[in-house]
Write a protein that binds this DNA or RNA. Structure first.
Length: 888
DNA sequence: CAACTCACG
DNA sequence: ACGTACGTGAGTTGT
């Protein structure tokens, strides 16, 4: 069988070059602890993994160039003469590539006087004759001349992980030539990178034309007299010698005097301990954690499980004592609609699996899941709750959530894959979903259900195994309360909000769509007229060319890749060019159209006419929620056009109302609390307009009446800046003032609020000392860059240290309010339903008759969520749609 | 898949 | 001197 003998030949130098330049932009991040550059090694390793998996070879060799001089330089001293010197950042990596290959059990070989190509050509020939299938991997298209029915030449495209396979058929398709004619083409056209000439004025196109007629260089010269007199004929005659020399140089040798044989190339397989040492030396942590040791492989394979049946359910459930791990698998991230793939339940080596989720609906099982006295260990309480709810199964009694706890221990590790999270905690016996299900379009259930079952059982085991250790860490961090009393119960509240969903008035969206479409149409025509040509207005690149090259408008800002056409830039151009103003209007309307009108229409659940978002409870580094699919936390409000979108968000029932309440200035109040600043606290205690109050102080005014709207605006920006971890540069950019002016504002601010200044200094010191910062409720964020030598990274970490306790504590507070709110609604038997959270705001729907109650209850609950050294302030309002809610 | 732009707090 | 505001998600273009 041909697949018994499969030889993989890798062109080491050319692939290493490709690898180096593929990650060239990140050259400064790929440096190990000894200062060695590792980008080429890293990318080479990735390539190796890809090709070993793709080709499953029995024999492998990586060929390298032996040195600068070869038989080719002897024939033509300028061969490769114009090549730039290999960068030292790359050449220093070659010896380590050899180490990598040794650890992979792959033969590396070079031969004096010959290039890697010739080694490959010779071995390919030998192997093909011996009945091997041969795959060559290279970055060099010249090697396509080696393609035959049994030899495929795989050329890297875009980096090194994608390969284009050149079979003789593919060569014919691309060049209209046979592989051997590639050599003739090179002879005629020459090669600038290898620096040999070919025939003057003959390039690829002409060469191909000639070869189609005369087959080879030899054929052309034998039949030269058939050609009509032309410049080309003259050149061919004149450069005869060069053509034959070039063809000779381009010819890859298939008879190099190798000192090794095919039997030396048997693929040994990876030496895992050696590879582990190597990865440690290179600081390749991702590879390191992927590196399964034999024990792990065995543990992964060894787990025992039983397939659950309807008959066995009662006995199995009755047999459990104490906490039980439960995991419900849904492959899609959107668990509101994802099909169920299966589930696992069990404890202490007893694992029961099934793909039949109807089993969960058996009375005993349903009662088991609903029993608050039966402790459950899960991964993703919210997801599990929503999934079971779709099966009309209530879930209670969750004691541990691996996903939530892992997030609380380190919110920077925001992955949501069980396998990856387990690895973060040094547990490697469970595969990642990507390993089992694949990714992207290829994501699917394994063909063999046993593979799925094993994966599910491994997941349940991982949850059970990791619980004690993670619980202990929670306690050590004083975070057990944060988990048990805040995040875990919140997961259920969020699940209920997602399930409730919010009703959307499709007809209203369609009316808006028509209106916007008409205005977009008009603007498009106007812009084309002003530009005097049609182009894609959505393309900032094309727009840049029109504005700054064709119309010669002044370039105000550049981005990495070209002209900036961001709002700020167009705002400035408005004065001199009406097109800028029209583009801004166009952008605004197309944004609304595609993101909000079309976007929202797409995600309305046809069954109930509602939108069910998904809150990500374990994503942000600060403790805030985020909302996806769709994002309901960024529905337009600032501009009237966009705000109209909110007219489509309506109560589920006729005669009901939307009610919303928000915290006023919660972040500045938190700052006043944690900094104990008397002046800032006084402003809130007195119920002052905080931005006006800041304006009075930083502009040295005696009376509130002296505050102009512009002063207030600037003071507001300063207040924001303070919360974000201020810098004079940032403030100056935001306000369009000089850095000097910005600095004066900040100095004045700190003079007026000295304890705020103290807090900012102290929190940075504390972050340096402990390596993390905390919120009021012990939410933690690690800041490793606080010690960085890199100014940027360090500064960023310092600003984060200042901002996270503020933003994070505000997030804690509204979470407490949500828990208390849900309980209050239930205790008071209200029909009112909490639907959405937008960081400092809660949105409800309720019968009109309950609005008066909510106007009392909601602000009171939000107010009482936490006791700060300053009062809270809550605004609220209601109306027939979200648009009509005006808070006061 | 990255970059840009823009919606929200 | 360094070169930035904090936290998000989604649509589009273009390599």
């Amino acid at each position: 069988m041909a697949s018994d003998k499969h030889l993989l030949l890798i062109d080491g130098n050319s692939v290493a070059f490709r690898a180096f330049f593929a990650l060239h932009s990140q050259i400064n991040t790929f440096i190990n602890h000894n200062g060695l550059h590792t980008n080429a090694i890293y990318a080479f390793n990735t390539m190796l993994d890809v090709v070993l998996k793709a080709f499953t070879p029995t024999h492998v060799l990586v060929a390298f160039d032996a040195g600068k001089t070869t038989f080719r330089t002897a024939k033509f001293s300028d061969y490769k003469g114009q090549r730039d010197k290999t960068p030292s950042e790359l050449s220093e990596q070659f010896p380590y590539l050899r180490d990598l290959l040794a650890a992979y059990g792959i033969c590396a070989y070079e031969l004096a006087d010959f290039e890697a190509d010739d080694i490959i050509g010779t071995l390919a020939q030998k192997a093909a004759a011996a009945g091997f299938t041969v795959d060559i991997v290279t970055g060099d298209r010249d090697l396509t001349q080696l393609a035959t029915e049994s030899v495929t030449v795989n050329v890297t495209v875009k980096g090194v992980n994608q390969l284009e396979a050149y079979t003789p058929a593919h060569v014919a398709e691309k060049y209209e030539l046979t592989p051997r004619q590639i050599i003739d083409m090179k002879g005629l056209a020459g090669d600038t990178s290898d620096n040999y000439p070919g025939v003057t004025k003959v390039g690829e196109k002409t060469a191909i034309k000639l070869l189609k007629q005369f087959d080879s260089v030899e054929g052309i010269y034998e039949n030269l007299d058939q050609l009509k007199p032309s410049k080309m004929k003259e050149h061919l005659e004149a450069d005869r010698e060069q053509a034959f020399l070039s063809k000779d140089l381009a010819t890859i040798r298939q008879d190099a005097p190798l000192t090794i044989d095919l039997t030396d190339l048997v693929y040994q397989g990876r030496d895992v301990p050696a590879l582990r040492d190597f990865y440690q030396e290179m600081d390749f942590n991702a590879f390191l954690s992927k590196l399964a040791d034999p024990e792990t492989e065995q543990a992964r394979a060894a787990i025992e499980f039983q397939e659950l049946t309807a008959v066995s359910v009662p006995a199995v459930l009755a047999g459990f004592t104490g906490p039980v791990a439960f995991y419900l698998e849904m492959l899609d991230t959107n668990y509101h609609t994802a099909p169920f793939a299966g589930f696992v339940i069990g404890q202490q080596g007893q694992w029961y699996v099934s793909t039949d989720v109807k089993l969960l609906q058996l009375p005993q099982f349903k009662a088991f899941l609903a029993d608050p006295q039966q402790p459950k260990l899960v991964f993703g309480a919210k997801r599990t709750y929503v999934g079971l709810n779709r099966l009309e199964i209530p879930l209670a009694g969750i004691q541990f959530d691996l996903l939530l706890v892992s997030y609380l221990l380190n919110p920077n590790d925001s992955g949501n894959d069980l396998g990856k999270i387990a690895q973060l905690h040094q547990y490697r016996e469970v595969a990642t979903d990507e390993e089992v299900y694949g990714k992207g379009a290829k994501r699917a259930l394994p063909e063999d259900p046993q593979v799925l079952y094993q994966h599910l059982a491994q997941k349940a085991l991982a949850i059970e195994q990791l619980q004690p250790q993670l619980d202990q860490q929670l306690e050590a961090n004083e975070q057990d309360g944060l988990f048990k009393e805040m995040e875990l119960p919140l997961a259920i509240v969020l699940a209920q909000m997602e399930i409730a969903g919010i009703r959307v008035d499709q007809a209203r969206l369609n009316v808006l769509r028509k209106d916007f479409a008409q205005r977009i149409e008009t603007l498009t025509k106007k812009i084309y007229a002003e530009a005097e040509e049609e182009f894609n207005i959505n393309s900032s690149k094309q727009l840049g060319v029109i504005l700054f090259e064709k119309m010669n408008l002044p370039v105000i800002k550049k981005t990495k890749t070209g002209y900036s056409t961001a709002v700020g830039v167009l705002e400035q151009l408005k004065q001199i060019a009406p097109i800028a103003s029209d583009v801004l209007d166009y952008r605004g309307l197309t944004k609304l159209q595609s993101t909000y009108i079309d976007g929202l229409l797409k995600v309305i659940d046809p069954d109930d006419g509602k939108i069910h978002t998904t809150y990500l409870q374990t994503l942000t580094a600060t403790g805030r929620l985020s909302s996806i699919d769709p994002n309901l936390q960024n529905i337009p409000v600032r501009d009237e056009d966009g705000r109209q979108i909110r007219q489509a968000f309506v109560p589920k029932t006729e005669g009901w109302q939307i009610f919303a309440a928000d915290y006023s200035q919660i972040e500045l109040r938190v700052l006043a609390h944690i900094s104990h600043d008397a002046n800032l606290q006084a402003a809130f205690t007195e119920g002052a307009d905080i931005h006006a109050s800041t304006a009075m102080r930083i502009f040295d005014l005696k009376d509130a009446s002296e505050v102009t709207p512009n002063m207030r605006r600037q003071a507001k920006a300063v207040n924001f800046g303070i919360v974000y971890g201020i810098s004079d540069y940032g403030l100056s950019q935001n306000l369009g003032i000089t850095r000097q002016q910005a600095k004066t504002y900040i100095d004045n601010y700190f003079r007026e609020y000295p304890n705020v200044k103290q807090y900012m200094a102290d929190i940075v010191t504390s972050a340096q000392k402990y390596g993390y910062v905390e919120t009021l409720f012990h939410r933690r964020r690690y800041l490793p860059d606080i010690h960085s030598k890199n100014f940027n990274l360090r500064s960023f970490a310092e600003r984060t240290a200042m901002n996270t306790p503020i933003q994070g504590s505000a997030a804690d507070i509204i979470k407490v309010a949500m828990l208390n709110m849900q309980k209050a609604l239930r205790d008071q038997h209200l029909q009112a339903t909490m639907l959405l959270q937008v960081h400092d705001e809660l949105i409800f729907e309720a019968p009109a008759s309950e609005i008066a109650t909510l106007e009392q209850l909601v602000p009171q609950v939000m107010d009482a969520a936490v006791k700060l050294e300053v009062p809270m302030k809550v605004g609220y309002g209601s109306g027939p749609t979200w648009y009509d809610v005006k808070k006061g």
